[in-house]
Design a protein around this nucleic acid. Sequence first.
DNA 1: TAGATTGTTAATCGATTAACAATC
DNA 2: TAGATTGTTAATCGATTAACAATC
Lengths: 229, 229
Amino acid sequence: MKLNSYINIPLPTLKRFPVYLALLKECGEQGEEWISASYIAGRLNLKSIQVRKDLSCTGVVGKPKKGFLISEAIDAISFYLGEGNLSDVLLVGVGNLGKALLADKRLTRHGFKIVAAFDVDKDVIGTKIAGHMVYPMEKLPDLIKRMGIKIAILTVPEKEAQPIADKLVDAGVQGIWNFSSLFLDVDCSVTVINEDLGARLALLAGRVTHGAGCDDASASKLGSLSFSK
Amino acid sequence: MKLNSYINIPLPTLKRFPVYLALLKECGEQGEEWISASYIAGRLNLKSIQVRKDLSCTGVVGKPKKGFLISEAIDAISFYLGEGNLSDVLLVGVGNLGKALLADKRLTRHGFKIVAAFDVDKDVIGTKIAGHMVYPMEKLPDLIKRMGIKIAILTVPEKEAQPIADKLVDAGVQGIWNFSSLFLDVDCSVTVINEDLGARLALLAGRVTHGAGCDDASASKLGSLSFSK
DNA sequence: TAGATTGTTAATCGATTAACAATC
DNA sequence: TAGATTGTTAATCGATTAACAATC
């Protein structure tokens, strides 16, 4: 299978990849072997031409009348999403949200494994949360280096977000999933996804208040992972 | 202040609004009165022309040499994000994630109030989580109607997501913040934001694996709320 | 005044969509 | 074969960016 350069894939397309992947896996688990662009489009409230265009970015080729081989499409998209490669992540900040993520099976299903959790609170250090050992912050840099961790989940109080982010980056982390509503100031080579939950809810409220409308189809595009169907 | 129609605001602009709002509030709390587009751009890793263009959508007008009055800009953006209007929301599914959201002060800071939580588990029903009473599912439709709730947070197991979504919509809910990784099949007049956490992490991993690069500035655009700075 | 910053108009860029030939 | 579906090329659409006049 010919693979295109990651950098050539349009960002909107890339954002739809995880959604395609979830659907492909769902259908695969139900025993389906083939899937057509129009089926995907129907399920996700997109247009089939867009699905075909997106899939073509991965280099996967379909068969007229049949569609795409689900297993091939999963492999192709997974490649671009880095699943299976960078599966080891760590989590800093074992508060409510941190605990919820440690227990969340969906991260596992996407091929990720939280290998360690960190906190400053002596009461949680040394305990296991959903099977994950909680370590003191002092061990953070060493563990990152030893295990070559590239991705960290940051679920700490706002004040601590920036200094901890600095430590993470110093130790070699290249991607941060930031749940604080602060804007982290990190080297531009580090990828940050800000998961500002308050902001997400505000966006939803805005759409509801002002009635985004039904048939303009834009409602289905709300949020990077959002489809109304 | 002249206000534009919500529907005329480009979706990418709308997605940046919550991020602007957070920054504006941060600066406002620090006693600042004015803010310039170039300052905002610097903080958020955007270009000042884009910030000005975005702000102009709200109808707020700035002053040459000074910038924008922070209080005015906050009011303008808040209007489009529906803050203060639809502040009452409810939450269904008091699991780990549900508890984390119930305790999250950021939702409050954005002007939202979770007025009630629901679950099927008899052990949690009747208890208070972070000050929020947990009710049995039977009371759901009645409470939605009586209080005129328009927005619901859905943090239930995957299997229950669709049937509960149906109940919510039947009772009058117009916006659903869906934390399951299923695609909800609801009337297109209902706005759904899918917060598929596994998918988000996959996207981050993809960017890290394939090195999104430093100076192409696209890294800073990752995710609807994502800026590398 | 001079300089900084806004707001507008036009140009550029890129994603989506349409049209249609190719193919199973 | 006929029909459905893919893949490609071109057209459209919309967002971003550039240029520059207006203004405090």
